[in-house]
């Protein structure tokens, strides 16, 4: 009886359950998910039409970079909001504590949910990107082997922030309402003029965005970047992720000491 040996073979079931739930909710409530795509698309069109009108040739020359930067910002924003607000929503629904009582532990379940949500967001962002390309008539030369690792490592730092904010929302559930404000900070981070300002590269998204812009604009391949530059990207990604996870664990321990884990 029981589930003593469930964990070993159970990670697959855990991931599958989370994927199935995301899909089911998406299919059952498509307006919610597609609403996000339409919003991002509308916002891009404002940027695109405004830039073409007033930016002239300079805008046209940097359009590829703008498109990929916008894609990264959209991905980061939606992933962060989803991860950060997930805990508050689960607490509201009354399901948060059930996710704690699993053989995997709360942190692993939340990490799995975050990864699955981000993949879902990436697919929607991909659709949005395709529509953007159709609207602008642009053709992106995407080197998958370069772009995917850069995007994943850039998003790792966003995951870290998401975990930290998620941890804070374990303690202060209403904080989730304020998380969308972070998207404005992300605009600055994705578009930061990082060249020549070393300390800016320590901020999340900045270095990854810079490398992505270079990859898109100058056709630099992953292995053509300086080793130091790639190491910095890995260090910021992993560093923020580990630090964010540590904040999350610390917050959930504090919440359990104070008996407020499931409160809303």
């Amino acid at each position: 009886m029981g589930r003593s040996n469930a964990v070993g073979g159970g990670y697959g079931h855990l991931i599958r359950a989370i994927v199935e739930r995301e899909l089911l909710v998406f299919v059952r409530y498509p307006i919610n998910a597609l609403g996000g795509v339409v919003t991002f698309l509308a916002l891009f069109l404002v940027v695109f039409l405004g830039g073409r009108e007033f930016g002239g040739q300079a805008f046209a020359d940097s359009l590829e970079g703008i498109i990929i930067g916008y894609f990264l910002w959209m991905l980061a924003t939606v992933a962060l909001i989803d991860i950060g607000q997930e805990i508050g929503r689960e607490a509201q629904w009354g399901t948060l504590e059930r996710h704690f009582i699993t053989p995997f532990g709360f942190g692993v379940v939340l990490l799995a949910k975050s990864v699955v949500k981000t993949v879902r967001v990436a697919l929607l962002a991909g659709i949005t990107l395709l529509v953007i390309l159709l609207v602008t008539g642009e053709r992106l030369r995407i080197d998958v082997l370069t772009v995917v690792p850069l995007v994943v490592l850039s998003l790792a730092s966003v995951f870290g922030i998401g975990f930290a904010l998620g941890g804070l929302s374990v303690l202060y559930k209403r904080i989730g309402d304020w998380i969308p404000l972070v998207q404005f900070a992300f605009v600055g981070l994705v578009a930061a003029p990082a060249a020549g300002i070393d300390w800016l590269h320590a901020l999340p998204l900045v270095h990854g965005s810079d490398l992505l812009q270079r990859a898109m604009a100058d056709g630099v391949r992953l292995w053509q970047f300086e080793a130091r530059s790639l190491a910095a990207l890995v260090a910021t990604g992993v560093g923020y992720l580990v630090a964010g996870y540590a904040v999350f664990q610390s917050c959930q321990r504090r919440a359990r000491r104070h008996g407020v884990l499931g409160d809303y």
Binding site: G9, H13, R16, T102
Partner: peptide
């Protein structure tokens, strides 16, 4: 937002079953 069966399946799965 899930059906009754989907809930049973989900919560069994996240418990490792």
């Amino acid at each position: 937002r899930l059906t009754v069966r989907e809930n049973l399946r989900y919560f069994a799965s996240i418990s490792g079953a």
